[in-house]
């Protein structure tokens, strides 16, 4: 009785499911490996100092991506600068001030809705809202990205605020501190984790974004300082990749940019895990 082995049907199920699972995991792993190796292999040889340090020139017919790198930096800075106070403020309202459950529900539902809207729609609305009034420029792109990244910052901040022990707040109130004082001295320091995590995630999202920027920030490759740059149209690295690959057939440059983006993605993921681990450890202390 005991040494009967599994029936054929059960054995078949076992073998089939195991095979399908291993196949799927293998496929996923192979895909990631292929993408990494292929993109880096095609891209890295094309990355030269000249490419990184110049702007495209019609005279020499050479392409440089310095303007695109700078544009990316500008747009990341501008977006974070605007979205941080908004997102953190919204999170503080939700966790510290809001007493009406319905209002909280509506705000959270709105945030969820925002994070589900595809970037092409953001691009369109950004064009109508910002570019039509201020012209196609990096700032219009940044403002569009602000709306896109608002839910991310809000959520990560909210999560870190939830880990601030209630007793801290009670302690501060017990000392006769007003609400605002408690928020400033007890709550705000507690949301540093969330803000940092949110920033990393947002930077990742901004780096990868193209559809929302095409019609809001445009795709010029002019070399500008940050102030002029924000007022002028410009392509970020991702948009530049699209333009070079799709419109101009410059695959060498496109792969060089792709390789750069790939490395940045790896770094950002690494940073995100590191930060999360660090904060998890600190919290458990």
């Amino acid at each position: 009785m005991l040494n009967q082995s599994l029936s054929k049907k059960r054995k078949g199920f076992e073998v089939l499911m195991k095979a399908l699972m291993l196949l799927s995991v293998g496929l996923t792993a192979a895909l990631v490996l292929f993408l990494l190796i292929y993109v880096l292999g095609q891209g890295v040889p094309n990355i030269t100092w000249e490419l990184l340090s110049t702007k495209p020139s019609y005279l020499t017919e050479k392409i440089g991506i310095l303007p695109d790198i700078l544009n990316t930096v500008y747009i990341v800075l501008a977006t974070l600068l605007i979205v941080l106070p908004l997102g953190v403020g919204a999170a503080i309202y939700l966790t510290e001030y809001a007493s009406n459950k319905k209002v909280v529900g509506i705000i959270e539902y709105a945030a969820e809705t925002l994070s589900g809207i595809p970037s092409i729609i953001y691009g369109l609305v950004g064009m109508l809202l910002f570019s039509n009034s201020m012209g196609t420029c990096l700032m219009a792109g940044a403002l569009t990205l602000v709306i896109m990244n608002l839910p991310t910052i809000m959520r990560t901040t909210q999560e870190s605020l939830k880990t601030v022990p209630q007793s801290y707040r009670e302690g501060a109130f017990g000392l006769g501190a007003g609400k605002w004082r408690v928020v400033r001295t007890v709550v705000l320091p507690g949301c540093v984790d969330g803000v940092i995590t949110g920033c990393i995630l947002s930077v990742g999202r901004i780096l990868g974004e193209s559809a929302a920027l095409l019609f809001t920030a445009g795709f010029a490759h002019a070399l500008n300082g940050i102030i002029d740059g924000l007022a002028a149209p410009g392509a970020t690295l991702t948009v530049a990749l699209y333009v070079y690959a799709k419109e101009q057939g410059e695959f060498g440059v496109a792969f060089a940019i792709a390789a750069i983006l790939m490395v940045l993605t790896v770094l950002i993921n690494f940073a995100a895990t590191l930060v999360q681990k660090h904060f998890a450890k600190r919290r458990s202390l």
Partner: peptide, 9 residues
């Protein structure tokens, strides 16, 4: 990583 790769890539 797969999730973070930009769609243009």
């Amino acid at each position: 990583l797969l999730a973070g790769i930009p769609s243009v890539v």
